[in-house]
Design a protein around this nucleic acid. Structure first.
Lengths: 364, 364
DNA sequence: GTGAAAGCGCTAACAA
DNA sequence: TTGTTAGCGCTTTCAC
């Protein structure tokens, strides 16, 4: 039978000191004599002590605040899901005295981000979760956080130089490659593929470029000579030149597939495919948003790659909270699997995501 | 600022009784007067009390034993993964005084199952996790458990009449439909498909039949008249008639795809596909076993449907443990999403499954 | 520098 | 039928 884990009390006895002293060396709070320190450490590493995190959280009366910074979720289903994730995590972590507050900003307005981020800072959070979709604006904010020694976690978009505690998201290059694979599958002969970016500023959105690169690389490997790729970029919903170019692309008889690089764009592109009666063209897009689901069901869309915004947000909160209250070290990079959704496994995803356990505490 | 959760003490005060009494009604341990019961319940449902599970587990000094019954994992990678899951859950739950012991049996030997199950029973477990792959043998065991009022959870295979606390697994009919979709994708013209069952006794394995039904139904809907389906069943590795029939099938010029219904069979079928130089034939199989992964990488296999044996086992343990120590009610049916693995998203799955949080406590 | 002690929210044994 | 109390393993305060 497995034996009981050793407790602070045990090592205190073994070292001939009080539990207070052991606690002090455990958290290097100082105020402990050379001698005691040595004795405790000796006992410590021959007994391999694992703190009981449960008891730790109960015993500690400290409150923690986590600020979550993300684009406004009204009128945006993708960020709506992320927001949902945060709302789900909220009541769960409250039991551990972790308070989560969301600060939302307009992703098209730098000033809005600055406002939200300074509000977040003013609340003196112990940790920050952030979707850094405005590259230029977030950078000074990171610096600010670093100066104040506030740990922060990135999700959705990675900024490698940020020195964040953790990044949670997907490998976008491989996401693009996967899209390429799904687009090519079973296609024969010559032809062309379209890559669509919709309503995103490509200069600020390296992430979409990464997807396109992955897509292009895969196609180039699979069909070195026979296929061409057309990339279209809609800058805003009133961009008429896009509409014309798209109409032209869709009228090509050898068009074999369309890849849309974002979840919002997916809906737009699907709409046009339907309008032009191009149901049979292979189409790959992103995420289980309501409209996308409808297009997947009626066969306009063939594959959706699931970015799991909700779970990303939850994981982000969990990562911070575990770090703060349990002192758990975070994975520097937490890449979610690239999940493929089709009309036939869609339901199994929907049924499952509804209610799913939120808090994740690893006791190790 | 979110307010503190209400505690037992709070509702005791509000109801004008002691915390002991509240605890009694919370766990309906009886010994509480009509009057007190009513008052406590009133306070209870107007204050929506959520117990602090952390404190609960700390406070309870009870030990729990969970027995896990599953096929021997030596020489079987699929069950090896399930076993791994159990091993992962072990140390995590130990902190909550839950002891997990695995009892393995030879899936081809009824007597072996009986031996393992009676051993498990003798350990007087508080809960049992079981992969009921031997339909006939498990039934009396379920009865035995029910008589002793020991809760049990099924995973991998569902037996609806078992009256289990929960079933954890996938919807196999839809798994088959998904396989059908993936097999058809991009295929044109007439042709035939093959369904392969390898080394499983179909009489005892309704689950494989469910997959085949899903597959057939999907194909019939998609191609009502143009495609035929051939079903082959290998009863043992020395079944020569199978080899001949398979060779014949593979030599058909209009063979468009192969669906293998089990993870072990997947490897076998892939081997033959490679031997016969039929790399271009669409092939769909199951699970991220080492060999299957290799065949996926080199293009013999096109899709693997991921049954997540490891996570199923972990979820099963979590379900039982949460039920036992936290009195959480379990989902009667916990269907995992049907995950699609291709050569391009494979790595994202492998990287992710390595180390992933195990314990899942929902505080709600 | 150190130890003793209170308390986190809960369970369970024990008195009353 | 009740209320009281002693823990669970840890943190944190406070006196020595």
């Amino acid at each position: 039978m497995a034996k009981k884990p050793v407790r602070i009390k045990d090592i205190a006895k073994a070292a001939g000191v009080s539990i207070g002293t052991v606690d002090r060396v455990l958290h290097n709070r100082g105020n402990v004599s050379e001698d005691a320190l040595k004795r405790v450490n000796e006992v410590l590493d021959k007994n391999e002590y694992h703190p009981n995190l449960i008891a730790r959280s109960l015993g500690s009366k400290r409150d923690y605040k986590i600020a979550a910074l993300l684009p406004n979720h009204l009128n945006d289903d993708y960020w709506g899901l992320a927001y949902q994730g945060i709302e789900l995590a909220k009541p769960e972590w409250l039991h551990y005295s972790v308070h989560i507050v969301a600060y939302e900003f307009d992703p098209d307005l730098a000033s809005s981000f600055q406002e939200a981020s300074s509000k977040a800072l003013k609340s003196k959070p112990d940790g920050v979760l952030i979707a850094p979709i405005l590259y230029n604006e977030t950078f000074p904010f990171f610096k600010n956080l670093a100066d104040k020694a506030i740990p922060f976690v990135l999700f959705n978009t990675n900024i490698i130089e940020s020195n964040a505690l953790s990044f949670i998201g997907q490998d976008l290059y491989h996401s693009g490659r996967l899209a390429g694979e799904l687009t090519c599958l079973g296609q024969t002969g010559e032809g062309q593929f379209g890559v669509l970016h919709v309503d995103e500023d490509l200069n600020d959105s390296i992430h979409l470029v990464q997807k396109e690169n992955g897509f292009r690389d895969f196609i180039a490997e699979r069909y070195p000579f026979t296929h061409t790729i057309v990339s279209l970029n809609r800058t805003s919903s009133s961009d008429f030149s896009f509409k014309k170019k798209l109409a032209n692309l869709l009228s090509q008889p050898d068009l074999k597939g369309i890849f849309v690089s974002s979840s919002r764009g997916t809906e737009t592109a699907a709409y046009f495919l339907k309008e032009y009666g191009k149901k049979e063209i292979r189409m790959v897009g992103y995420d289980l948003l309501e409209k996308n689901i409808a297009y997947l069901k009626n066969g306009i869309i063939d594959f959706l790659i699931h970015q799991k915004p909700q779970q990303q947000a939850i994981e982000g909160i969990n990562c911070l909270a575990n770090h703060l209250i349990f002192k758990k070290e975070a994975k520097r990079v937490n890449l979610f699997p690239l999940e493929v959704i089709t009309s036939q496994n869609l339901e199994s995803y929907i049924a499952n995501q509804a209610e799913h356990t939120v808090i994740n505490i690893s006791v190790k």
